[in-house]
Design a protein around this nucleic acid. Structure first.
Lengths: 254, 254
DNA sequence: AATTGACATTGACGCTGCGTTAAGGTGTAT
DNA sequence: ATACACCTTAACGCAGCGTCAATGTCAATT
């Protein structure tokens, strides 16, 4: 049996364009070209195409497929195992994504009367929270995976009410910090109150509190531009001020 | 606070190229352009970028994000719900993929001494099996979901030994069918034996056998090019012959 | 013999979300 | 004056084809 492009295409359930493309990239060349320049495929090409489509359905890239089908000695099983690893990782990512989307949906449904502005404020806050979590990744080296894992678990389980509380706390930190900044004294009463509020805010994310970690985070606020910009957006120098207040609060600096 | 591209980029953790691209597609335009043509962003743009990145992390496409962030009245929650549906479907697909890959790995590991040719023969057979399953999808309308679901479950649980058996059975069907075709008599002994073997082969895929379904599948072999081509590849007319034999075997035609 | 309609061919652009040169202007410190 | 960091636009490249466009071929009908 011999097939023209369209015959083979309809047989295999692909488009003729796909066959031309496979010819182009050298993954499946026709058995011969007839006098009019038509591509003519034979049984061997049908079989090969079936292999190709098989791997394609598994999500293997065409370049990898090429290696598999053009070199019969190639270790297909090994390629598949590697491919499986990729798929599993992809699934974990996907699950995280879904969880985040659902959390967001739940949040937005719970406060149906929120203005758009408030909504976006919420999102913005969440971004900052995410940054805190990212920081968590960097703290893993210092304080171990356990701390961070528990932090994330805690965040996952946060209810809507708790979310409102933590948002409020964050605002209080900002306000108190702004007032304290005016005094210019990181050891002063207001600054220490800000540091204390910041600690309470932190406990929403961290499973257990330690002075060292708190002080480390404070230093991070100064070292990492992303945080510096966030705290400095009203008054430059605020991040540094907060760090000093926290260092004093935690007794790392007197 | 005002930001140039790089300031904003490092603040938000994206590349300057990304910012220029967002400007280009109109998703995030700078607050103003200075006398030298530099892009200058303000606080409002920082906030907007944070929204954009938030949605981006959720895997939402930039065009959808554009609708969300440029039209503040847009129903973001609805968009998210739709997005969630897509993600869930994606996950189902991914799970199917993983299952298939693992099945294939198990198969190839079980028969380490298989030549490559045999291996690929196995894959080819599997393709046909897949087609049977696809056909199953079409049969759902006729015989209900239950039949097909059980069929798939059965296939999932097929052991390596069973796989070998079913492969052997498929070969026997082919051989007997080829011999029977020579006699030209679909009611003859050989043709009826082929139909019987075909029935046994089928029971590996279908949870319960019915004459009607068997006859329906036989008709499908003639109606669907993919199957026709498979059975006709040696001798054209074989698919039709098999259908007739099965119709007689099942008593749907005398 | 000419027309029609279904098939075939080779280009070549488009899609997503940027990464990555390339070629050049600007700002600031030395 | 020179160096060096930072800015600009323009353009190609990536995967895997979909989708025209312009043109040639085959078989059947007029």
């Amino acid at each position: 049996m011999e097939y023209t492009v369209q015959k083979l295409a309809s047989l295999a359930g692909v488009s003729t364009r796909t066959l031309r493309y496979y010819d182009e990239i050298g993954i499946l060349k026709p058995a011969r070209i007839n006098s009019s320049g038509y591509r003519i495929y034979g049984q061997a090409e049908v079989d090969k195409l079936q292999q190709i489509l098989f791997y394609r359905e598994l999500g293997v890239g065409l370049d990898s497929i090429k290696e598999i089908v053009t070199a019969p000695s190639f270790d297909g099983a090994k390629a598949l195992r590697e491919h499986r690893e990729k798929l599993l990782e992809k699934r974990i990512q996907l699950d995280l994504l879904i969880a985040n989307v659902e959390k967001t949906i739940a949040l937005s449904e719970g406060r149906i009367n929120m203005s758009n502005k408030e909504k976006f404020e919420g999102f913005k806050k969440k971004m900052i929270d995410d940054n805190e979590i990212k920081y968590g990744k960097e703290i893993r080296q210092k304080y171990g995976n356990d701390t961070v894992d528990k932090s994330n678990a805690k965040l996952q389980n946060m209810t809507e009410e708790q979310y409102a509380e933590v948002s409020k706390l964050a605002e209080q930190v900002q306000e108190t910090l702004a007032d304290a900044f005016k005094t210019g004294d990181p050891a002063g009463e207001l600054a220490q109150k800000a540091a204390d509020l910041h600690k309470h805010w932190l406990t929403y994310y961290w499973h257990e509190y330690s002075k060292e970690a708190h002080a480390g985070l404070a230093q991070m606020y100064v070292d990492d531009e992303r945080f510096t910009a966030y705290y400095d957006k009203e008054k430059p120098g605020t991040a540094e001020f907060l760090r000093d207040a926290i260092l004093i609060y935690t007794g790392m600096k007197k």
